[in-house]
Design a protein around this nucleic acid. Structure first.
Lengths: 346, 346
DNA sequence: GTGAAAGCGCTAACAC
DNA sequence: GTGTTAGCGCTTTCAC
C-alpha cells in the first residue's frame, strides 16, 4: 500500500501538518525538522494522493484538450506543443477526440467527457457561430481555432485572413496570376471556419494585385484530407481551366494536390507553384518540399495554456473574455521556388 | 457551485445512499424512487465529483500513455487507437511525452509524472533490456514496443522478425536481389529495440533466398527521422554500392529515402523498389505511394488497453506477466509495384 | 428498499 | 514552529 501523509508524519515523529508544510515549501519549519521529514518521505517513497488533494483543493492539476483527431498532423503538432507548455506548469493533459462530430463536441462541453480536469482547451470542428452560447460552461474554457468568434470565453486564433493574403501574395510575387484555391467550394464561401477566412484573404490578395477572381479556380473538398484533395485537383485539371499556382488551405490538401499534379505530369514548381498552410512537418519531406504558412503553433499552445491556467486561478473577479492572435510567417520552400515561365492572363 | 450527491438526495427526498444506488444501477430501488432521483439529477445537472470518487474507490478512471513524441506519425496513430479503445471502456487517457529521454522515462516509471492515473501504457525509447527491473513498479503497467523483453509486466508487441522477413521476401518476389537495409548501422546490429529484430528478419529472408548479406548495404541512421534517412540514403548512393531495393525500418525513413532517391534521379519503383514499416497514413500520399508493413496498430492498442484495465481490476491474485503479439500484413503499393528490370547479382 | 455514518488522504483554519 | 481538527464528496457496510 502506498504511504500517506500520516505514515510520513509518524516516521518523522511530527504532525501531518508539518509534513504538509514541508511538501508545500511553507516557511515556519525548522531546518532540522524539514530534513527529518524529507528523509521520511524518501524512505517511504511517499507520493501525494492526487485524488485526495483534488477533492480538498478543487484542483486536479490536469487540463483537457479536445481536438478533432490526433492523427491529423496539425493537431498532433498542436497537442505536442500543448503538452510541452502544460508540462512547464506541472500540469498534465488529457486528450479527447471528437472526430469532428457535433455530438462529441456537445459531450465535451457538457463536461461529461473529461471529468478529471480543471479546464478545457477546445478546438471545435462542427460547432459554429450559432452555437456560441454553448460555450457558457461552468468550467474554465479556452477556445482555439476560427469557427466561433465573440463567444463568452478566451479565444486564441491565428490571423487567417492576413496569413492567407500573404500566402497568395507570395505566389503573385513569383509571377503567378491564375491561382487556384483548394479547400472550399465556390458556392460555400460564406460558411464557418478557417476556410472562409482564408478564402477572404485569397480574394483580398487577388484584388490588391488587380487579378480577377475566377470561381472556376475555387474547388473543394470540404473534408481536408489527402484523398479528397487529390480528387478535387484532378477535377480541376479535367475542367480545363488554366492555372499556374495552387493555394491549398492546409498542408494536407497541398500534399494531395501534389500527388494529383504528379499523376498528370505537371511539374512543381515549374508549371504549377503550390503553397500550403500550417507548416506541418510533412511539408519538409514531400517532393518537392512545400512552401507553407507557419501559423505560430507553439505560440498558440503557450498562450492557450497560460490563459487557461490563469482562468483556473482567478476566483470570482472574472475578467471579460479576451481574444489573442499569433504571428504568422511565410515559409518558402521548393514548391514556390521558381518564377512563372510565362504569365498566363485570365 | 456544482451539485453534490447531498443536493440530489435532498431534492429527491431520499438519502444519499439511494441516489448512489440509482447512479450505479444497483437493484433494490423502487421504480418510482428511481424516477424521482433521476429527475433530481437532471434538474440539478448533477455530475459526480471524480476526485471524491477516486479518493474513495482508489480509481481515477484515467490511464497514462507515455510515448516518445506525439508528433511522430506512428505514435499519433497509436495514441488515436489507444484513446478510441479507452473510450469504449469509459476511460480517459493522459498523454505524456518522453522525447526518448532516459530521464523522462525514469520519471514516468517513478510515478512522479502521471499521478491521476490508474495505470500506464509505456512505450520506451531509451530504456533497454538492462533496465528491465525498473519495470517493477507499484502501479499496473503494460509495456509496448520491442526494447525490453521478459520483463515483469504484460507486454504487447508486434512480430518484428517475422514481419521484416515478409517485407524483404516481398521485395525478393519482385526480383530484387540487392536490397539495402535502412535504419541501422552495420556495426550496431546487436543493440536493443525494433532495429535489430527487423535487421534479423532482413538477414533471415536473404538467407532463405540464398542471397549473400552485404554490410555495405546496411546504413544508419540511428535516429529515425526524415532528414537523417535522406542523408543516409545519399551516402549509400555516393558509396557506389549497387542496389535495387530498400527495406526501410519504418515509413518515416522510407519517405526520407524516397526524397534522396528522387534528388539523385532514381525512379521508384523501376530502378529502386522501397518498402517501409508501420503503415502510417503518409505511405498512401507519398509519390509514389509506399508499400509498408501494417503492424496491426489498432489491435495493439485494443489489447494493451484491455490488459491494462484487467490488471487494474485484479486484486491480489496477480497473474504472471504475459506477452501478446499482433498480426501483421504486407501492404503493397506503388513503390514495389514493379518487377526488377534486370537482376543485379551481388 | 432505504438510511446513517465511517472514512478514503489531503488542506488549511485555528489553537497553542 | 508545530499540532489538532473539520470537512471536501463519495462509496459502502451495516442496521432497520
Amino acid at each position: 500500500m502506498a504511504a500517506t501523509l500520516r505514515d510520513v508524519a509518524r516516521l518523522a515523529e511530527v504532525s501531518i501538518k508539518t509534513v504538509s508544510n514541508v511538501i508545500h515549501d511553507h516557511p515556519n519549519v525548522r531546518d532540522e525538522t524539514r530534513a527529518r521529514v524529507q528523509s521520511a518521505i524518501e524512505e517511504l517513497d511517499y507520493q501525494p494522493n492526487m485524488s485526495a488533494r483534488g477533492l480538498r483543493s478543487g484542483r486536479t492539476g490536469a487540463i483537457g484538450l479536445a481536438i478533432p483527431s490526433i492523427r491529423e498532423n496539425y493537431f498532433a503538432e498542436l497537442a505536442d506543443a500543448v503538452i510541452e507548455a502544460a508540462d512547464l506548469h506541472g500540469v498534465s493533459v488529457l486528450v479527447s477526440q471528437t472526430n469532428g462530430l457535433r455530438e462529441a463536441e456537445l459531450d465535451v462541453l457538457s463536461g461529461r467527457r473529461l471529468r478529471l480536469t480543471d479546464g478545457l482547451l477546445f478546438s471545435p470542428a462542427s460547432l459554429g457561430q450559432d452555437d456560441r452560447d454553448l460555450l457558457n460552461v461552468r468550467f474554465p474554457l479556452v477556445l482555439l481555432g476560427e469557427r466561433m468568434f465573440d463567444g463568452p470565453t478566451d479565444h486564441v486564433t491565428m490571423l487567417n485572413i492576413e496569413a492567407a493574403t500573404a500566402a497568395v501574395e507570395h505566389l503573385i510575387s513569383r509571377g503567378r496570376r491564375r491561382i487556384a484555391l483548394l479547400g472550399v467550394d465556390a458556392e460555400r464561401l460564406d460558411e464557418a471556419g478557417s476556410a472562409n477566412l482564408r478564402a477572404a484573404g485569397y480574394q483580398l490578395a487577388l484584388q490588391q494585385a488587380g487579378i480577377a477572381y475566377d470561381p472556376a479556380l475555387v474547388v473543394g473538398p470540404a473534408h481536408w484530407d489527402h484523398d479528397d484533395a487529390a480528387e478535387a485537383t484532378r477535377a480541376l485539371i479535367r475542367s480545363g481551366a488554366p492555372f499556374d499556382a495552387v493555394f491549398a488551405m492546409n498542408d494536407t490538401l497541398a500534399v494531395g494536390a501534389l500527388r494529383a499534379l504528379a499523376e498528370a505530369r505537371f511539374r512543381v514548381p515549374e508549371d504549377i507553384a503550390i503553397i500550403g498552410f500550417d507548416d506541418i512537418e510533412a511539408t519538409r519531406f514531400s517532393i518537392p518540399s512545400l512552401s507553407s504558412v507557419d501559423p505560430g503553433r507553439s505560440q498558440i499552445a503557450r498562450l492557450a495554456v497560460e490563459r487557461l491556467l490563469h482562468r483556473i486561478e482567478e476566483k470570482n473577479d472574472r475578467q471579460p473574455p479576451q481574444r489573442f492572435t499569433t504571428d504568422f510567417t511565410i515559409v518558402a520552400r521548393e514548391s514556390t521556388d521558381h518564377p512563372a515561365e510565362r504569365s498566363v492572363d485570365g
